[in-house]
Design a protein around this nucleic acid. Structure first.
Lengths: 338, 338
DNA sequence: GTTTGGCACTCGGCCCGGGTGAGTGCCAGG
DNA sequence: CCTGGCACTCACCCGGGCCGAGTGCCAAAC
């Protein structure tokens, strides 16, 4: 049975192990924590916790270390989210306030998060799936060459070149530009396809081909840009891992370069609230020894993207969660302002 | 005196050391290479090379390893650039040909380079200093809000929001757009300031403020975007370093995150031809144990940016140089086509 | 029934010492 | 100037012994 004291023992083990990186024994535990019982009792509790799979010993006759399951219990039932100190909060705000554009916001965020948590930070660019169109622009670069520029409400700009078969007159162009904008501005990406579906019909026969082409490029861009981009930072913090780590660090670095993997990882996180994935809970095997703390952020109530931290399973969960949450909030504010 | 044979001995030492990662002794050398002399003679030559500072022994009575100075000599006088095999060339071309836009080209290039050299690859985005303006677009988002979009010949697009004090009419806007484009399209960034200097004078009094503002934002963008961006990849290859490397790898990762440092590093490379900086020749102390192989690339004759590789001083210089040069050429071609 | 002190046992980590072998420098002879 | 021989030096490997933290179990105490 998981008595209160046994939980307390687990908490103590996690805390000590996170601090010292060394297996923790019964005697040391009673010395460093006010458990009110003797080492022998703690040993009994430890035996129980081990039977239940919350802790394990690396070798016979060594101290215990938490298992993934142990961390899970710790995070779910024992660890609060540690709020940041107010100097830290101020530092975050100052640091982020200086950003000049979206790239800068994301870049600063990733550096900030890496610095605060001393771990690897991952920040996803605001997703376009939920964003809306701020403006669509069409430029004529050459008689039969157009450029389509798409501007989103999160400040992203995408452009595409279009080679048309037939020349497209300035007036038709202005016409298309106006109609397109009147239909899609302020709308969500997902809604755009049906909104523009019948647009070619209202044009002259000769222009319809080009109009269709422009539309298909636009839709393509929307789909393509729904693919997410992300930025990582603080990889040097990986060296704070174990001392053994050619083996430990390599698969992690490899996983981090596979943006697809990371995006999937972040994607699996809940949209609201914080998600913590511990060790083997991460599908990717290179990350079997790491935990991922992720949270959604956005300019309004809805999360438009996620950010988080990748670190060893042996990490300071309350502190990390606090930092991640705080950063997400401030980034959300910044995005809402701009 | 640096006789032909002594150079040959140095070459053999470098080659063996690069291959085995272990200090190389006189006996092993004569066995693996056709030097035509006995180990004793090689020992004498080694003693000479050591006196001159080209090689060193990690401990008394161990084999020799090349010093930075030794690698320098090797690169300057002994190492050719090893051309890639034709399957490799084909692979490069296939891989790069699939790119859809500039981001994709750069992303693919960095992955490709990391894979080919099995080292850390660094690719700088095409610089705007030497590029020209393809198009400038002005959009009216709201009565007193404009958006400036700048398109460059390298396919980059930059946008800026402008809040004007006074509303700016559609006709004035079209006017400004037309005049601006007629003056700057096809021109180099550096020439733009003087080309638009007197533009406000030709507008009505009431519009001059806004026009000036637009121009200043444009110039600002040109300057800002001259700041370079870069992408790195293949950091997992750092784990192939020595086995000791918590100490080795950490400063390198840190240096790699400092894009400013890397940009400076690339900036120091010659514009044309390949530059190899070995160990302490790199100003940054975190990179004291690494070499940087860099080369300029561009769509025409002129280099618009640089790319390269960061790896241990003990690297396969001919092979790395070959890969770097080949990739730079192909990227140049791709850029020229698009 | 839970807690506690005692006790025997296990086993990883550390230090020590000898043996091994690759590699060196030097020297005398070709 | 090259070569073979020779004595010397160390880094590395291996095995053994010691040590101590930590454990599991048990009988006694609360």
């Amino acid at each position: 049975m998981l008595s209160e004291r046994r939980l307390e023992v687990l908490r103590a083990i996690v805390q000590d192990y996170v601090g010292t990186e060394e297996p923790v024994g019964s005697k040391a535990l009673t010395e460093r924590h006010q458990l009110g019982v003797s080492p022998a009792t703690v040993r009994n509790d430890m035996a129980f916790l081990e039977d239940e799979g919350f802790i394990a010993q690396p070798h016979t006759s060594a101290g215990r270390i938490p298992t993934d399951k142990g961390y899970r219990l710790f995070v779910d039932r024992l660890a609060g989210v540690k709020p940041l100190s107010s100097p830290e909060r101020r530092a975050i705000q100052n640091f982020l306030d200086g950003a000049v554009d979206l790239d800068d916001v994301v870049g600063r965020t990733v550096r900030l998060l890496a610095q605060l948590t001393r771990q690897v930070a991952v920040v996803q660019y605001p997703s376009l799936t939920r964003s809306t169109v701020r403006h669509v622009e069409l430029l004529s670069l050459a008689p039969a060459r157009l450029m389509l520029v798409l501007i989103t409400d999160t400040g992203r700009v995408e452009q595409r070149l279009i080679d048309c078969q037939a020349p497209f007159g300035e007036t038709s162009l202005a016409d298309l530009r106006a109609r397109l904008n009147s239909r899609v501005v302020g709308r969500r990406f997902a809604d755009v396809p049906q909104l523009v579906q019948d647009l070619p019909d209202s044009f002259e026969q000769e222009d319809r081909g080009t109009v269709s082409m422009v539309l298909s490029v636009l839709l393509e861009t929307l789909v393509e840009e729904t693919e997410e981009r992300l930025v990582i930072g603080g990889t040097a913090n990986l060296t704070r891992f174990g001392h053994d780590f050619p083996l430990t660090i390599r698969p992690v670095l490899e996983a981090l370069e596979e943006h697809v993997v990371l995006l999937k990882l972040l994607g699996e996180a809940k949209d609201s609230g914080m998600t913590v994935r511990i060790g083997h809970e991460n599908a990717h095997e290179g990350l079997a020894a790491t935990s991922v703390v992720a949270v959604g952020y956005g300019s309004g109530d809805e999360a438009v993207a996620k950010l988080g931290v990748v670190g060893p399973t042996r990490m300071d969960y309350p502190g990390t969660m606090g930092a991640v949450r705080a950063v997400a909030r401030y980034v959300g504010q910044i995005l809402a302002e701009s």
